[in-house]
Amino acid sequence: MVPALLWVLTPALVDAMSAPAANCTAATRGTPLPVWAPFDLQRSPNYELVYAVQAVTNVVMNLTGLFLDIFFVTLMLHLTAELDVLNLNVASLQPSPVAPAASLESRDGDSLAEQTSTDAVYTARGDSFRVRTSTSRSHMYRLLVKNIQHHQMIIMCVDDLERVMGQSIFVILLTNVINICSQAFASAVLFRSGIDWGLVTKMLFTFVAYMFETGMFCMFGQAITDQSERLVESVGGCGWLEAEAGVRRALLVMLTQASRPLTVHVGKVAALSRSSFLQLLNMSYTVFNLLFELQSAD
């Protein structure tokens, strides 16, 4: 938001500071963005109207992008929190003392011996497993089935998140790479030809904003991957050694899915991760270096 305000306020501030030094001569007044108009742009109220339209449009577009970023980041934070809860629940699984089925009661107050057994289908990313959820099983088994279903729901949410944000975030990241290259190249050229502190300040703030937005998506995407990788350790850290054979088989089903960490892909090309962020920075530097060498040769 700060770069947007700088782009909006800089022309007015420059005009206000340069007016006394102009010795009352007419000076061309600038606008936040270069514009061609079929009318006299310097005459009032034409100038004020064009300036106001550009200012409002600039602020609204930046606020829209900011709210969209917050929305996607919130979704990724929720998925990270759900994976953290799942890790804690799986790691705390321990065999419970065996009790007669007639003496066990469910949370609804019904006898577990009177309840019917069901099958839970565990489908995730093309794989399908059937887990028996008989109430005559141990308490650890029934908790494990709930955790498996929780994991399945998280996988479905990650797939939905990819479909929602895949194309838009890919366009944003690609645009940020282009803007980072152009901003760095323009700053280098400005330092060579002479420093315009107002323009340099706007470019520096904008450069930081592009870097922050790109790194933000990659870091939160990496958090989802880290929590999903931690699930393998949680499965290995639970009390599976003393558990019954059915629990071990169900844990093997969960371990099969946990061995493939969840990643948020954008544009079906790259995943949101630290390595992708470093690759984007490397790409930006390569393009900047190419442009700088071409400009130096001229």
Rank of each mutant, 00 (worst) to 15 (best):
V2E: 00
V8G: 04
V8D: 04
T10R: 05
P11A: 06
P20E: 03
A21N: 05
N23I: 00
A26M: 07
T28I: 00
Q42A: 06
R43M: 02
E48S: 10
V50I: 15
Y51W: 08
Y51S: 07
N58D: 02
V60R: 10
N62C: 15
L63R: 03
L68W: 08
F71L: 15
V73A: 15
L75V: 13
M76E: 09
L77P: 00
E82G: 05
L88E: 15
N89K: 11
P97M: 01
E105A: 10
R107Q: 14
E114I: 08
Q115K: 15
T118W: 14
T118K: 14
R137L: 11
V145I: 12
H150D: 00
H150R: 11
H151Y: 08
Q167K: 07
I169P: 03
I178P: 00
N179E: 08
Q183R: 10
Q183Y: 09
A184E: 06
S187N: 11
A188P: 03
A188I: 09
V189K: 07
T201V: 07
A209Q: 13
Y210N: 12
M211V: 08
C218D: 08
A223N: 06
A223R: 15
L231W: 01
V232L: 03
L252W: 04
V253L: 06
L255A: 14
Q257C: 10
S259R: 11
R260E: 11
V264P: 01
G267E: 07
K268A: 14
A270I: 10
A270K: 12
S273R: 06
S276M: 11
S284N: 03
F288V: 04
L290N: 03
L294H: 05
S296E: 11
